[in-house]
Amino acid sequence: MADDHPEDTTGAARRKGEADAWGAFGLIISGVLVWGLIGGLVGAWLDSALPVMVGLLLGMGGGLYLVWFRYGRA
């Protein structure tokens, strides 16, 4: 995570924060995208709308877990 030097509030530490925020955004987007797409394909195959919802929620859960795993642990 961000380094522990309080005086270093510009430069590298701030850059790291920006990268982390975009990384978190990307992880959640791709979670919803990948598993929503898989759910959509399964739903088209089974002819039902349920798998899309399950896929979207599963992807959101996975993305959030990865965000916590990558950026959230102190």
């Binding site: 990384g23 990307g26 992880l27 987007i29 791709s30 979670g31 995208l33 990948v34 598993w35 599963l58 992807g59 859960g61 996975g62 993305g63 877990y65 990865l66």
Partner: peptide, 16 residues
Amino acid sequence: VYILLAPIEFVSTIII
């Protein structure tokens, strides 16, 4: 859990 997470990581790095 890798089954759930590996595609997410891959897509987020290579595509997103």
